[in-house]
């Protein structure tokens, strides 16, 4: 975790940040801690997955700045429609870590009763919507919820997350088009980690920047350095301010470098160039923000070590709790198919 010489530094003038981002110090330190926690969780869970103690895991390593930066820019009124790597948003917004880990282990204390694969949590407590594994379906759903917010004159906006591969999906096209026509309060957040499993983004579509796709729907689109916590926070905050003022939907493309396999079931050495991982490491969002905090004196080496230990302890405790929890009650298999347990012949 020591800052690498090859690391691309975050270059911000603290006085400029003072002017444009009141309170940024607290925000960055908070964010940094969450990023450390996410990193610790990914490490631990991938280890457990290899040991066969959880069935699957989709690491968010390398994408922490997007989840954390966006989460910190939200208000409690906002809604999140996640993709596969946005669970951290739920945690930053207050969903308890142990509850999330119960989900990863599919225990009886998982709010969804262990019905979904790991990394598909539901957290209604923090307006984090249940996701499927189908690519892009959440995009139109997010537009619909944003329409409902507008119809009911509720504050808040919707963030719909999806990856680079999802820009080819039906719901990307339908969702952005409808948002453009209806001018719903939604921010489309494309986490372009440059790989859809084995397909590189330049073979995903003929256009260089995914943000350009927004113009096809009459929306503004911008590319943002998604490994820069400050940039993400600022861009999301500003976009949401415009959206809340009624300026209509927007799309942000967060340029990322996928630092892990697509999932625990994937072997990227089959398709990535040998130097990909080192290029990605140079953009690792965690040491990037860490070095900035150390350089500006906001973080000391000692505090850094203490935080790392703290988050590790939290993760270990949550894992221990979940591993001790019972599996879902077999009777739960038949619950929640419909509102009432047995309409008609069901369950006989």
């Amino acid at each position: 975790m020591s800052p690498d010489d090859a690391l691309v530094p975050l270059t911000y003038d603290p006085t400029e940040l003072d002017r444009s981002l009141a309170g940024w110090r607290r925000t960055l330190l908070d964010g940094y801690r969450w990023m450390l926690l996410a990193r610790a969780l990914d490490r631990r869970m991938l280890g457990l997955q290899r040991q066969g103690r959880v069935g699957f895991y989709g690491a968010a390593t390398g994408q922490e700045a997007v989840s954390v930066g966006a989460a910190l820019a939200l208000t409690p009124d906002d809604w999140v429609f996640p993709g596969l790597r946005e669970q951290l948003i739920a945690l930053v917004r207050g969903h308890p870590l142990p509850t999330y880990v119960h989900h990863l282990f599919a225990t009886d204390l998982d709010p969804a009763r262990g019905r979904q694969m790991p990394c598909h949590p539901t957290a209604r407590d923090v307006r984090y919507v249940s996701m499927s594994s189908v690519i892009g379906t959440q995009i139109t759903q997010g537009v619909g919820l944003a329409y409902a917010l507008k119809a009911k004159r509720q504050p808040g906006a919707v963030l719909a997350f999806f990856g680079d591969g999802a820009t080819s999906a039906n719901d990307f096209h339908a969702g952005l088009n409808l948002a453009g026509v209806w001018r719903t309060p939604v921010l489309f957040c494309c986490t372009n980690n440059q790989w859809a499993i084995s397909q590189p983004v330049e073979r995903q579509t003929g256009v260089r920047e995914l943000a350009q796709k927004a113009a096809a729907y009459g929306l503004p689109g911008r590319r943002v350095d998604g490994t820069d916590l400050i940039a993400v926070y600022r861009e999301v905050r500003d976009a949401l301010a415009r959206i809340r003022s009624g300026a209509g939907p927007e799309m942000l493309e967060f340029l990322l470098y996928r630092m892990t396999a697509h999932s625990s079931s994937d072997d990227p050495t089959r398709y990535q160039a040998a130097d990909w991982m080192s290029r990605a490491a140079a953009r690792d969002p965690v040491p990037r923000v860490e070095r900035f905090l150390l350089d500006t004196g906001l973080l000391t080496e000692e505090a850094r070590g203490r935080l790392a230990e703290e988050v590790d302890r939290e993760v270990r405790a949550a894992v221990a709790e979940a591993e001790a929890a019972p599996p879902p009650d077999p009777a739960s298999l038949f619950q929640d198919v419909f509102a009432s347990a047995s309409p008609g012949s069901f369950g006989r």
Binding site: T205, G206, V207, R208, Q212, K213, A215, A216
Partner: peptide
Amino acid sequence: AMKASAYGF
């Protein structure tokens, strides 16, 4: 026609 720009042609 400008929708083509979303696909790079």
